[in-house]
Simulated assay, not measured.
Amino acid sequence: MKIVIVTGGSRGLGASTALECARRGMGVIVTYNLNPEKAADVVKAIEGISGTAVALKLDVGNSQSFPAFREAVSRQLDTIWHRKMFDFLVNNAGFGLYAPISDVTEAQFDGLFDVHLKGPFFLTQTLLPLIEDGGHVINVTSATSRVATAGVAPYAAFKGGLQVLTRYMAKEFAERRIRANSIAPGAIRTELGGGLNDEFEAILAAQTALGRVGEPDDVGGVIASLLSEENRWINAQNIEVAGGYLI
């Protein structure tokens, strides 16, 4: 059995990814920060389809907590799956902020940086000794790094940086045959950044070739599929999953 860690797996894209991975027979470790009840619901849903899962607390914005998290992962791997290592890491956890550059505070900038770029960098570094050779790291980025959308400059800049980091991961982890790719969702109906109101959703749908905003399952299935053996030759790529947003 392959084992995947999905950060931010208590809701939205992370929850969908966790369930899709479980449907494909993977053991799942989901992380949460502020929503233990929702994380427990995801674990229960996975168990409901005869899967195995566990939820662990993780603040991706606090890199000092990563060594303790690695120890918690090791304990769960041994207890639940009788393994010392896992196979896949999905760096998904994140949050949104809508503000023009002129209004962004340094604290807001630093918070976004810690979660969207620094966090994935050092979490991957911390967990790398536990990733099996031939494993896979997927970083969730954003279509906003391709299309300039007013009000999300820091978020988009760090997601763009994460795309670059993904290529370097693919290069440097290649000696262990660990692949690295990134997935860039477009507008998705989730709670990120407070969610979408009807007016903004209509605008985004009109800018998307398929005529609607995405749902979490539109992306979760792609991530789970990319982890499969059938996609073993895809590496160092940023794959936009956006329904044809502003093409």
Rank of each mutant, 00 (worst) to 15 (best):
R167Y: 12
R23D: 00
I178G: 07
K171I: 06
K2S: 15
D133W: 02
F122Q: 01
A170K: 12
I5F: 06
G96N: 10
G214K: 02
T141Q: 06
E71G: 08
H116W: 00
V222L: 04
A206K: 13
N238S: 12
I49M: 10
L196C: 01
V60K: 13
G220M: 06
I5H: 12
Y168G: 08
N235S: 12
A15M: 00
V219K: 04
S74G: 14
Y98Q: 11
N238K: 13
V104H: 11
A184L: 15
E199L: 05
A174C: 01
D198F: 05
G135F: 01
S102Q: 12
N238Q: 10
S142D: 15
K57L: 01
A99H: 13
I178Q: 04
I138S: 09
F95I: 03
V219T: 03
N91V: 00
P100S: 14
R212C: 03
G25F: 14
G134R: 01
V219E: 00
E240D: 15
K84N: 06
T52W: 07
L128S: 05
L127I: 10
P67S: 09
G61M: 08
R24W: 12
I46G: 05
E47D: 11
S145G: 11
T126I: 12
G61V: 08
P36A: 08
F200T: 04
P36R: 08
S50R: 14
I46R: 07
I131V: 15
A39H: 09
Y168D: 14
V60Q: 15
L56T: 07
S225Y: 10
P129K: 15
A180G: 10
V28K: 03
K118P: 00
E215H: 06
E172M: 02
A68V: 02
T124Y: 10
A15F: 01
K159G: 07
T144Q: 14
G186K: 11
I46L: 10
R146K: 10
L13E: 02
A206R: 13
R24K: 15
A53Y: 03
L196T: 01
Y32H: 06
G27P: 06
L204D: 02
K171G: 09
R176M: 00
L165I: 05
G119L: 12
R146V: 04
E71I: 00
A224V: 07
T208D: 08
R177W: 05
N181F: 04
A40E: 14
K44T: 14
F122H: 07
G48P: 05
G161A: 03
E20F: 05
L128C: 08
A18H: 09
T190F: 06
D78M: 04
D59T: 08
M1D: 09
T79H: 05
L162C: 11
G211C: 13
T17D: 11
E172T: 02
T105H: 13
N238F: 05
W81K: 04
D87Y: 08
G119S: 12
G14Q: 04
G214Y: 03
S225P: 00
I138W: 04
D217L: 03
R212N: 03
Q237M: 12
S182L: 02
G244W: 08
Y168N: 13
A170I: 03
N238C: 04
G186Y: 14
K118L: 00
I247Y: 01
